[in-house]
Design a protein around this nucleic acid. Sequence first.
DNA 1: CTGAAAGCGCTTACAG
DNA 2: CTGAAAGCGCTTACAG
Lengths: 338, 338
Amino acid sequence: MKDVARHAGVSIATVSRVLNNSTGVRPALRSRVLDAVRALNYQRDRAARSLRVRRSQIIGLIISDIQNPFFTSVVRGVEDVAYQNGYTLLLCNSDEDRVKENLYIETLLAERAAGVLISPVSETENLSGALLEAGIPVVAVDRRMNDLQVDTVVVDNIRGAYMGVSHLISLGCHHIGYVGLPTWTTPGRERKEGYQQALVEHGVTLQERLVKTEGFKQADGYHMASELLNMDRPPQALFAANNLTTLGALNAIHERGLSIPHDVAIVGFDDMPWGPALNPPLTAIAQPTYDLGYTAADLLLRRISERNGEITEVVLEPQLVVRASCGYVTGVCGSQDS
Amino acid sequence: MKDVARHAGVSIATVSRVLNNSTGVRPALRSRVLDAVRALNYQRDRAARSLRVRRSQIIGLIISDIQNPFFTSVVRGVEDVAYQNGYTLLLCNSDEDRVKENLYIETLLAERAAGVLISPVSETENLSGALLEAGIPVVAVDRRMNDLQVDTVVVDNIRGAYMGVSHLISLGCHHIGYVGLPTWTTPGRERKEGYQQALVEHGVTLQERLVKTEGFKQADGYHMASELLNMDRPPQALFAANNLTTLGALNAIHERGLSIPHDVAIVGFDDMPWGPALNPPLTAIAQPTYDLGYTAADLLLRRISERNGEITEVVLEPQLVVRASCGYVTGVCGSQDS
DNA sequence: CTGAAAGCGCTTACAG
DNA sequence: CTGAAAGCGCTTACAG
């Protein structure tokens, strides 16, 4: 910066002013500075700037599983708006672990993050409050936080699960297993609620033994589906609560040589690129994953530039994509009472 | 830090020393400082430290497509070692765009990254040299760089493609279409080479019109496979060069109501979680994705702490996973001359 | 073994 | 409109 100043024949204060687009620099000086910047290929030091203005250009993104393609797509939405606005993304993979999550929050504090996007490990209790106290805006994405007033963007999970299960019921399935997620997280809690609501509203008796909420991953889905399919009277259909548990459920089904949808139908939350490639193609609840990330990042940037706007919550709508695994095409949903 | 010093009754220099684990601080003082740190819940400011030591705790990770699950798994490997060593990950999604890639490199320079991991958009020409000049170690992952001497970790792409195509040939397929990647990238160049090598070594005539190298994504795969399947004498089998193009090829196959492997067999590079869920299950070339990231990050940290070790290149081995889409089970590979 | 002091590269009141 | 100067929170020679 000193070099640039010397080269342009001005003070470093002036250089700083033109770099920050401050008003009130004579056009002649401004262009001399800009020329010098170009000539020397100067790049402002971000660490020094962060220290001085007490805020970095870094946005923290705390998600629970970077290997879940759902999040990957959210990340893409976030990256697009961050990049367009000169922010940079610090990726924090909490791995569904509260300790790791909190360590990342402390790191973000130490980095003086401009803001943080979080999909919390649990709806209760994490250190996000410390971020807020430090003046760092937080927005919750995909998963809510109970004790904190922050902007949040989620999808209508209840509705999504409701649509999927209702569709199965409309096809004649009454005995539906739920391959679900832990309920301390928003999607886990709400998708289960949607499942229950669909049964109740269609006069189907809710059976607790048909509902599993053991995990987020493929192995969990496999395990839950296996338990369900091993029952004396196994479900006619499975509703799997995310793309990973769907894959696990599929493993359990294939392992038994069961045919879809004749022996057992299946509908999965999350419409993934491989859904149509399955045979039969997967009926799914599509989430606006990219928009989730994009909207959340947008809200965060807004909050960064204007701290005291109204707290907003945006709820995005999922969509039912009917293909064949639900039995729609064949009119068959599970063999047992069709 | 001043607060901590006052609380412990020492100078800030001493506080800094214990925080940095410098030798030569009396144990009594050390523990007084540590107590003060705990009492005040003190967290060292990373921006200030970065400015002073002229290096941050940030590792830049430049990849071309965060939505490609291949990279996502690499990222996970990187994150594990970064996290364990107190480093933090700056995610840079270049989107196969050289301009964006270079902008991210400049940002990393401005952030004084401790090191950067890059999967370059092209084997030639990017600004990584500037990183090296600034004393920032670089390691190439999955994709090589021509003009730069850097540690690199890749998989044996030639061998992977060779195994897949050879397997198809051994099943009786001679007319094999290649659904490939642009050749300015290492996997693109090498997988094509492996495909060709397998044909040549098994005495099969290489036909240029059967080899497509148009892109990395599902839509590209769909497009390439469509062209291939629309030919007068369409291929008996398709070898798709990554998981996304495989999915695209599958779309093209299903769209035509073709049956796998009877009408057309398929083998794909990348073994994904959905591979076994397909019907028939996908025969695939499995890559050690997590290890790729883990090894690369490990190399980078080693290079950070010891600048002048020998430059190393590690080549990881892929594996052929035989399932049914290649025709193995039925003994059928494409209908046309079987 | 410990502290006082300089300085990393910026930004921004303050004075002119 | 512009510059000199203070200071952000650290680390590390240097002196003792």
